[in-house]
Design a protein around this nucleic acid. Structure first.
Lengths: 140, 140
DNA sequence: CCTTGACTCTATATTAACTATAGACATTAT
DNA sequence: ATAATGTCTATAGTTAATATAGAGTCAAGG
């Protein structure tokens, strides 16, 4: 049994984050000592590590909640897990596309700047005049 | 002179967003009609369009504020504009790297799933056991 | 025994960029 | 006249935490 500081340390996250996960229902309410301090065991650590590792993969807390629920039915088919991951991959690929487009637009904008005065700055001009901006198809 | 609904329509954004920008100090407080309604002119529209177009490029409101300030000193050198854009491009490239890594990790995870039971699910297993996960160098 | 520092507790506010909601008043259309 | 739409203010919610305030607890050193 260890206290919250030790748990956080072992899972490589912050104390406040542990309390936050508890409030959000991702971690179970732990037993408390006589002093009111939270007391955790190995199972809590494993669960917290799972959550943190999911977060490292960009999995949202709501999805992690789903995964935690699924873990409690070991006999069931794991298709839903696969689905969650697939959806996630799809979302990441969309983000990639959008960020790449943004980057290209900005590089474009920057390439045209002649480093003169604000009045002549082609970056500001293009930003001011969407219709004449080479960014093309961002807004529909 | 037109009302907020028309302004929003012309700038292709929502009415609430216009009021939000005003509260945040990005749009000036407009004159008001006898009924208390906000009244806007062409300059307000141009400013709003500038803001929206910057947002389309992923420029943060705080940076947009900077750009708006710079626009008011047309005689100054436009170097700061260039700097803002450069920093932005750098940030986007970092995001790209991180998202690409996440995507690869997830694709990896998914590729190993044999679609059996939850108990055997290799996705959940890897997520539960950071040390054995093929994701490698995400956490330091 | 007392104090200092480190740890824990709760509750609330902040971040970014909006979106949503509620309740009231004004305008426009039928 | 009435109904639908537009506008007003103020407040809360979104994500995943982080920061802050104020109070109680614990272990070690003087």
């Amino acid at each position: 049994m260890f206290k919250i500081g030790r748990l956080a340390e072992l899972a490589d996250c912050q104390v406040v984050t542990v309390r936050f996960y508890e409030k959000e229902g991702l971690l179970e309410k732990p037993t408390r000592g006589d002093n009111g301090y939270r007391l955790y065991g190995p199972a809590d650590l494993e669960r917290l590590k799972f959550i943190r590792h999911c977060r490292d993969h960009g999995i949202a807390l709501s999805d992690i909640k789903e995964l935690l629920k699924l873990r409690q039915t070991p006999g069931e088919n794991c298709q839903p897990v696969d689905t969650i991951v697939s959806v996630l991959i799809g979302r990441l690929e969309e983000q990639l596309k959008s960020i790449e487009r943004l980057r290209e637009n900005l590089v474009n904008l920057k390439g045209q700047c002649r480093s003169g005065t604000i009045a002549d700055c082609s970056i500001l001009q293009k930003l001011s005049d969407p219709d004449n901006c080479s960014c093309g198809e961002i807004r529909e």
